[in-house]
Structures are given as C-alpha cells and as structure tokens.
C-alpha cells in the first residue's frame, strides 16, 4: 500500500468491519472468543449475557420518551434542552455522552445517519437495523436523502426543509416526530404503540 494519507482504499478498509456478513471479522471474533474461553478469562455464558444486555434496549424506550414529550410540555422543554438528562428522568440508563433531540415540525423534517460507521442512540433504541449500517444508506442518506426517504415510502414535500444529521462524532440523535392530530384521544400506552423505530431515525414521518 502506498503511504499516502489521501489513499482512499485505506479509508475503505476501516469501515468494512461494519458490514453485515463480514466473514473475515467473524472468523477473528470467533478465534478470539475461543482463546479467551479456553484460557478461562471468559465463559460462554458471559458472552451470551453481554449480547442480551446490548440487545435489551429497544424502540419501546424511545417511544416512551416521545409519548411523554407529546403529553407533557415541561418535559418536552427539558428534552430539547438536554436530551440525555431528560431520557434519564424516565429511568433509562444513557451511556452516550449527549443525546440531541431534533424536532419535526410542519416545515421541517429530520433524518439521522452515521456516514462513518453505525453511531446510533443504542442505550435508548438498542441495536441499529441492518440497513442503517449498510454502505448504501450511509452514502445515500447524505447525498440523496429525499430519494432514500421515497424508497421508505415517504415523499417529503419540497417546501418541507430536510435536515440530515450525520452523527460522525460524539453526539447521538433522536428525532421527535410530530404528534398525531387527534393526540388527546389516545392514552400513553396507545401513543407509545404508534411510534416506530423508523420515526425516531426519520425515515418515517407521520404517526397515526
């Protein structure tokens, strides 16, 4: 490999690990796990428990945050001011340095991506969907986000401003969707059930 800081193949090599079905990475992980278990530093049960813990957060936590914000204006104000603290108020342990909540309005839509890898508010939403970490989404969500949205079934009107947030560094983002027009006719549980992961990433817009 030439020692050229701008050599693009070198940048590519760094992100291949994130692709689903990467056989090479899987072989390395399996070998490492076998060695660690063989040496008695780790048990298979500990590995399974760690995976279960990683997978335990989920959309229900994000939905809880959004439904609370829709029905409690003071909470919503705190959420917009300091997302991490407001999420923690609901007894959701947040491991991310900061959570930035971006609000959809009739004239603004927000879309979250991570072009460099797969940054995602995992402590609230769990693991990202496989399309979120795909190279296609990561490249196209910034270059042609409106085409990507239309493939998700969302034809965003041109007069609605689209803000794409690339979570490339230390912040993690959560979209606050617009509440349904008949908000008052639902209880919290019904509201939470209407909110999907896609709403919180921004590939879906309308709730209800």
């Amino acid at each position: 490999m030439p020692h050229d800081a701008h050599h693009h193949e070198e940048h590519e090599a760094l992100v291949i690990e994130d692709e689903a079905g990467n056989i090479e990475a899987q072989i390395i992980v399996n070998a490492l796990q076998e060695v660690l278990i063989g040496k008695g530093l780790l048990t298979a049960h500990e590995v399974t428990a760690a995976i279960a813990k990683l997978e335990s957060p989920g959309i229900h936590l994000g939905a809880k945050v959004v439904a609370k914000a829709w029905t409690d204006p003071a909470y919503k104000a705190r959420l917009m001011e300091d997302g991490r603290a407001a999420v923690q108020e609901l007894d959701i342990p947040v491991t991310e340095a900061r959570i930035i909540v971006v609000e959809n309005t009739p004239t603004r839509h927000n879309l979250i991506t991570c072009t460099l890898c797969s940054c995602y508010p995992r402590s609230i939403l769990g693991q990202p969907p496989s399309w979120y970490i795909s190279k296609a989404y990561r490249a196209r969500s910034v270059r042609e986000p409106r085409s990507v949205l239309s493939e998700f079934g969302l034809n965003l009107p041109l007069e609605v401003r689209l803000d794409v947030h690339d979570s490339n560094a230390d912040m993690r983002y959560l979209v606050l969707p617009e509440p349904p027009a008949d908000l008052a006719s639902y209880d919290l549980a019904a509201l939470e059930a209407m909110i999907s992961r896609d709403h919180l990433i921004g590939v879906a817009r309308h709730v209800g």
Partner: peptide, 27 residues
C-alpha cells in the same frame, strides 16, 4: 466540538436539492 450546517446544494452540486435543505455534522 461544534455542530456545523451546510447547504446540501453546495455539498452535492450534481444532485437536485431544494435550497433550504441542510446537512448538519459535528466538527
């Protein structure tokens, strides 16, 4: 660390982006 907004039409001149669309990233 700052959040910086860019006009999408300036970042991707070969794509058709409405003038008000933005890309926001941490720098």
């Amino acid at each position: 660390l700052y959040r910086v907004a860019f006009d999408q039409s300036a970042l991707w001149p070969d794509e058709a982006h409405p003038a008000h669309d933005r890309l926001i990233i941490e720098i």
